[in-house]
Design a protein around this nucleic acid. Structure first.
Lengths: 199, 199
DNA sequence: TGTCCATCGGAACGAAACGTTTCGTTGAAT
DNA sequence: ATTCAACGAAACGTTTCGTTCCGATGGACA
């Protein structure tokens, strides 16, 4: 199946990377959407982008690097600010689950987590990204602390870790369609505790 | 590198599977320990077990099936029963993290989760296993409910899900060495809530 | 204007693992 | 003694990997 050079192609042979990188990133996302992580290979991305494999390897040293950049290009999830910690947390999780479900972000992030279990560089990249993300979740918590909705001695990092854990597991076990009532239960338990007489 | 049949081998050619399955399962675990999930291939397991690939494929239809059986053979984690929900949960998580850290179980389970992201049968197997496991965590919660340590209307499933989420994320992000104080914080927040005046 | 030269897409490479098929051997069941 | 299922070994064709060539392209610089 020898491909003949397309005479109508945009720009080749320039000194730097023009925008073929864009085509590669878009192709990577498209492959992930259509074939999932199982079908995500460098070869498939190159075919889809009509790019050469060496071009991909020149810019992204590993599959993990490509996955990470695809994920970082995604639109961010809105962080609600309703004035109520419970509403903020429930809203954030619903926004996040919806975003993960309705865009390719969920598939991309799942793939990145899976890749991190067998690729050291992916694990490192994911750890760095998770740190930044936790700061975002931490915003909700810090705001609530400023409003006095959270006891002062609470460790925001632990709370953010718990919220992120809940989100990760639902992503990894394909339970992004959890009803709002269940999410609200979880948030409510975290806010008020599960022990009796918890106000 | 043609291997000559070992004249001292145990038993071949029987009507059913004798105990070569045992050798394969042990080899699979050894490969996972020594090479990790990245180096875990059917070929590597077959070499290590001095078994033929068809023998493996005859019994385990997929890599996921082999992983799952290796994990199910592992020793179970002790479920504490101290009479205190907080101590039970903290003890369970410490036992689980220690078990995951000091045996191959952690690596095996991580690999299974990763495999489930690209293999449908692995996802199904993992879902079934997670259901059974949640019942175990649920034991702690149900006992506490019987003692009156938990309000009657609390959804034990949601609580168990949250605990499991925390464990999964720490496994997947290589944070099984979390200090007991941090784990205790998390459990305490869940029991008493993070809102002020939570008794 | 003309010569570099980095980058491009494409083709091919060897290595590895995939899942399958074939083969001769083994030993329990009949 | 014969049958027969499972065995280990070897080879198959396929796929993906990451790398190395190649001719073509077009901006940079003299």
């Amino acid at each position: 199946m020898g491909e003949i050079a397309d005479p109508a192609r945009k720009s080749i042979g320039a000194r730097r990377n023009p925008d073929s990188a864009e085509a590669i990133l878009e192709a990577a996302e498209a492959v992930l959407i259509e074939a999932g992580y199982a079908g995500f290979s460098i070869e498939a991305v190159a075919r889809r982008a009509r790019a050469g494999k060496p071009t991909i390897y020149r810019w992204w040293p590993s599959k993990a690097a490509l996955l990470l950049e695809v994920y970082q290009r995604q639109k961010r999830v809105d962080i609600p600010d309703t004035g109520s910690l419970e509403e903020d947390l429930v809203g954030f999780l619903i926004n996040l689950f919806t975003h993960w479900r309705e865009t390719s972000s969920g598939n991309v992030f799942k793939s990145l987590i899976a890749e991190a279990q067998s690729d050291e560089t992916a694990a490192a990249a994911l750890a760095g990204y998770a740190g930044a993300r936790r700061t975002h979740t931490g915003q909700i918590i810090e705001r609530a602390k400023a409003r006095g909705e959270i006891a002062g001695e609470i460790d925001a990092g632990v709370v953010a870790d718990l919220i992120a854990s809940y989100a990760w597991r639902h992503l990894l076990t394909n339970r992004l369609d959890e009803p709002e009532a269940t999410i609200r239960k979880m948030v409510h338990y975290l806010l008020r505790g599960i022990a009796p007489s918890g106000r």
